[in-house]
C-alpha cells in the first residue's frame, strides 16, 4: 500500500505519492522568471533554498484559476531539488495499492504527467508523475477529462 496526498485543481482531484512531498505552504512571494516556460510562475525562497514554482493548471492545460482564494504550494522533492507545485487547495491523504492504478484510457503517451487514476467514492484521483511535470520539451498536455462532481 502507498499513501497519496490529494489536492484539487479546477474541481478535479489529483494525487502525488506522499513520500515525494516535503511540506505544503500557503502564500509565498513569487519572483517571476522572464523567458522561462510559461507554466513556471517563478521562484520562491524556501528557508534559504530556492524552489521553482510550477503552475499545475497551466502545466496540465487547465483553465486559469479565478480569483477565488489563494493557491497552495505543495513542495515536493524532484530529483533532489525542491519544486513547488501550485494547486487550488489541499485534500485528504488516501491509501491505495499502487498495483490497482488504472491507466488513463486512450493510447499511452510517453512522458505524460498523469500516471493513472484511482477511484474515489465520487471522483477520480489522478496520480501525477512529478518528474514528467518538469520535463521541459514535452508540449503542454491537452485538457484532461474532468471527473463529474
Amino acid at each position: 500500500m502507498a499513501q497519496y496526498c490529494s489536492f484539487y485543481l479546477a474541481e478535479g482531484a489529483y494525487g502525488i505519492d506522499i513520500l515525494g512531498i516535503q511540506e505544503i505552504l500557503r502564500h509565498q512571494d513569487v519572483t517571476p522568471v522572464p523567458n522561462a516556460p510559461e507554466w513556471v510562475d517563478g521562484l520562491i525562497n524556501l528557508r534559504g533554498q530556492i524552489a521553482v514554482v510550477v503552475n499545475l493548471r497551466k502545466r496540465l492545460g487547465l483553465p486559469a484559476a479565478g480569483i477565488s482564494g489563494e493557491p497552495i504550494h505543495i513542495i515536493s522533492d524532484i530529483e533532489g531539488e525542491p519544486v513547488s507545485l501550485l494547486a487550488d487547495k489541499a485534500g485528504d491523504v488516501y491509501e491505495f495499492d499502487p498495483a490497482a492504478l488504472a491507466p488513463c484510457p486512450g493510447p499511452a503517451r510517453e512522458g505524460a504527467p498523469v500516471l493513472g487514476v484511482f477511484q474515489l467514492e465520487n471522483a477520480l484521483l489522478h496520480i501525477l508523475d512529478p518528474r514528467a511535470l518538469l520535463a521541459t520539451p514535452v508540449p503542454a498536455a491537452g485538457p484532461l477529462e474532468l471527473p463529474e462532481t
Binding site: 523567458n35 521562484l43 525562497n45 530556492i50
Partner: peptide, 16 residues
C-alpha cells in the same frame, strides 16, 4: 538556478 530553468540563459543564478 534549477536545472529545469536552464533555457533561461539570461540568468546566472538567483539569490535571496
Amino acid at each position: 538556478l534549477s536545472k529545469h530553468l536552464k533555457s533561461a540563459a539570461l540568468f546566472a543564478g538567483a539569490t535571496i
